[in-house]
Simulated assay, not measured.
Amino acid sequence: MIKPLRLYQIPWSHYCDKVRWALDYKEIPYELVTFNAFGKTKGLERAPKSLRKLTPILEDPNSKDDNSFLSDSTPILLYLDARYPKISKSLLPLSSEQRQQVIDTCVRLDSGLGLYVRRLAYAQMFKEKQSAISLLLGERFSWAYNPDDIRSRLVSPFLASFMIARFRLHRLRDDQVREKTEQILLEIGDRLRKNDYLIGDQFSAADLTFCSLVKPLRWIPYFADDRRFQIIFKYCEGIRRNHDPKYPNIDNFLEKLLENNRIQMKKRQESLFYRVKAFMHQINFLQRFFTAFMVMFMKNFYGPSTDDEEVPLFKPSISENKQANEALNDQRRVNIKSKWSLIKFLCKYQCHLLFTMPRQNLYIESGA
């Protein structure tokens, strides 16, 4: 009898969705545990200290090894396919050549597309429903699961500051994140015009990885409405329909929250009050001048060279064998050593939140 595995996840993470999908596809019993990003997560006290606290994290109580914990999505998929072989539900081709192609594709997508999409998705969320970031505190405070709660609204700007620093959301344009994402999608779109799958002639971990990582782009209008990428979303829809046991119930809580918020916003935009407010905002030249001044100030005072204080959160594994299947990670650690450094940090990233992030969203929407 197989004991249920434990998947430690951030519910809206596309990397966690990737592992969840693999577990369902291979019909492996599992339990979901929400990862506490700002505290201790129950169950992880059993994990070795050497384990990178990088979601998704899988705990396998059936493992005969001393270490039953594993992190990083692609190594987890490879482990599941080796530990729980089932030919009809295999995620890797039998051909050794195609098998390596699938692994290389997964790692490449994890190290590129997955990171770009995450940054774009967080920027979109801050634009539409900034208080939704309070969900990160849900494991500690029940009110955090309600973004409309006054406490969620109050704490969200501070959480947003840390998220902007951690994922360099204020440097989307400098890093050409939108262009890099477009390039990957167009290349894969060209392949899908001639093939049904990314590698070979059957569903594999490469298809699962790509469809999971591209999923948040459905909520970014620039990509969702662009005709060039419709082949991508149509392909992902078909793959999900045929190979994801959870389909069509695949939207997480955050995605449902954003959808409801858009419905409410559409209703508000039809009201006279909203139209008057929008008109007053357009003719408020003093506010527009102040915003333009602050944007210029941010470029000169808080330019890219000031980001050196944030250092990479995770270092690559020393093992060459691990490095081959381990994806890059762009998360950064904030070095706050004193109250004064905390004040400077919050001042800097609150300014980025108020004045830089709107420009980043404009860049995503129109390339400006």
Rank of each mutant, 00 (worst) to 15 (best):
L44T: 00
C16A: 14
P29I: 10
A37M: 14
W12Y: 12
S13I: 10
N36T: 03
K40N: 08
N36C: 01
Y25F: 15
L44F: 02
L23S: 07
L44M: 01
A37Q: 13
T34D: 14
K18M: 08
L44W: 11
E45R: 02
S13D: 11
N36E: 14
R46Q: 14
D17Y: 12
N36P: 00
P48M: 03
L32T: 11
I10H: 09
Y15R: 06
L23E: 09
T34C: 08
L44P: 01
L32Q: 07
K40L: 11
A47N: 03
D24P: 02
S13E: 05
G39Q: 05
W12M: 11
K42G: 00
R20A: 12
A47H: 02
E45F: 05
T41E: 04
T41A: 01
V33E: 13
Y15K: 07
E31Q: 13
H14V: 11
P48G: 03
P48W: 07
R46L: 14
I10R: 09
I28R: 04
A47S: 07
G39S: 01
R20T: 13
A37K: 14
V33M: 11
N36V: 01
T34W: 11
L32Y: 05
W21S: 03
C16D: 12
L44N: 01
P29F: 12
D17R: 15
K26I: 09
Y15F: 15
H14G: 01
K18R: 05
F35V: 02
W12S: 14
P11E: 09
F38E: 05
I10Y: 12
N36D: 15
S13R: 03
Y25Q: 05
S13M: 08
T41V: 02
F35P: 00
F38P: 00
K42E: 15
W12Q: 13
P29G: 05
N36L: 01
K40A: 08
K26E: 04
T34Q: 13
W12R: 13
Y15D: 04
I10D: 07
Y15Q: 08
R46P: 00
